[in-house]
Nucleic acid binder design. Sequence first.
RNA 1: GGCGGCAUGGCCAAGUGGUAAGGCAAAGGACUGCAAAUCCUUCAUUCAUCGGUUCAAAUCCGAUUGCCGCCUCCA
Length: 480
Amino acid sequence: MALRVYNTLTGSKEEFVPINPGKVGMYVCGVTVYDHCHIGHARANVVFDMIYRYLQAKGLDVTYVRNYTDIDDKIINRANRDGVPYNEISERFIHEFDKDMARLMLQLPTFQPKATEHIPEIIALVERLIEKGYAYASGSDVFFRVDRFEGYLKLSKRNLEDMQAGARIEVDEKKEHPMDFALWKGAKPGEPYWESPWGQGRPGWHIECSAMSSKFLGDTFDIHGGGKDLIFPHHENEIAQSEAASGKPFVKYWLHNGFVNINSEKMSKSLGNFFTIKEVLERYDAEVLRFFLLSAHYRSPIDFSDQNLKESELGLERIYNALAGIDERLAAGTDHAPTEESAELDEKCRSIATRFSEAMDDDFNTAMALGHVFDLVRSINRALPVSPLELLSRVKQEIASIAATLGVCDSVPAEYLQRMKDRKTSEMEIPVEEIEALIAERAEARKAKNFKRSDEIRDLLLEKNIVLLDSAQGTTWKVK
RNA sequence: GGCGGCAUGGCCAAGUGGUAAGGCAAAGGACUGCAAAUCCUUCAUUCAUCGGUUCAAAUCCGAUUGCCGCCUCCA
């Protein structure tokens, strides 16, 4: 089945046909590096990482470009506030971004260009726009002439008149039209600058993405992605700049991810209701966060809450429990002839790859894909004790292949479960030695059939969120 | 004011014309000395409301209500 993607430009799902067969050029707007990333950034980046992985899994040769916008008003403001050079801020937060993304297990893009390393390309692009009459210098600034570009607002599907009616646009004497936007900004005293034909200045927001995308992917490429909030003005302006300059279509498929909400409201810096990735990872495993972000379709809003994260944690644990069970049987090495239950598992195992790719082919429906995984998990649990080892190895392989695409369930099961236990253990108020002493005492009591004392100890520990697990091999424990 | 999106069981969440996936929670049962995990069973005759199209609609059309987003920096 062919991959279908929802294209913001056309407002509908379309079959994905690469411009050059077998190859995909994909550009995703990265971050403006002036602060720590929040989980909204985490979602956007995890989503496009998943898309990148899936396209590769389909055998496509993907060139993935994700930029750093490392010069911008907000960076300058932050630098002024902190009394440090602007590049100290940008370099610091590039480093922090990289660390966050690594913890979220993102694959590295093919290229991660920086705006400040492409100033000559940016200046050349602005000059070209001026030559073609799409831009004009005004003082030391250069603006894009929006009413000159015919397709302006075709992505966000608005028109200039309506935009102005209720808009809060500050009147700028230097602009011909209130909606014109800056391609180049003259430097005020004390601001960082580069030499240009219009004097000392810096690039405006938007132009760096046009310059860098064409450098790495050409004038026309397949996929451009980002958060929904970038549709206007950022992506609209990119289209205007790039298509005006090249005279060619800019992007074939525009993909936009939905927001992370807090109590159904958009999480954002300006509202102040945001959690940084680092804050969340103090309380939840990175894989849990990733699983949570992929548990809804990428275009839907997703509500961030403790309860939802806890659910993801439980769901992921359910999958890992099943995988750990497979590992244990494989390690034990005791084979079993096929049974009715194993036949059902065999059937599920044979169809899982198809069901997974059908879900993913439908505009990257990870929620449905995970549903299929859970379905397989139940079959695993049902058939685990009575399945041939050969079947269990195949199941393991199928899941590993899915896991590699989603970037979840990719850990060694026993290690994941241990990691979760360690994380919870570190939050306990009762020392491990005390738990073990109580377990030893309980073992004695149980041996003497003193179940009253045995249950007292179980209840005592349960109050502290410790659950005892009895088995033939003895008693272990876990944190509730 | 303009434009756009969403509304599915207690919660989360798939499902864009063919008769409601999956997860969490809950209840009963099996297993266990008791538990945990796991398995089995139950859990939306119904998809915000009202009309319409159709043999057939959660899915298409219209209206209403509610929530959200963009129009200003924002993933």
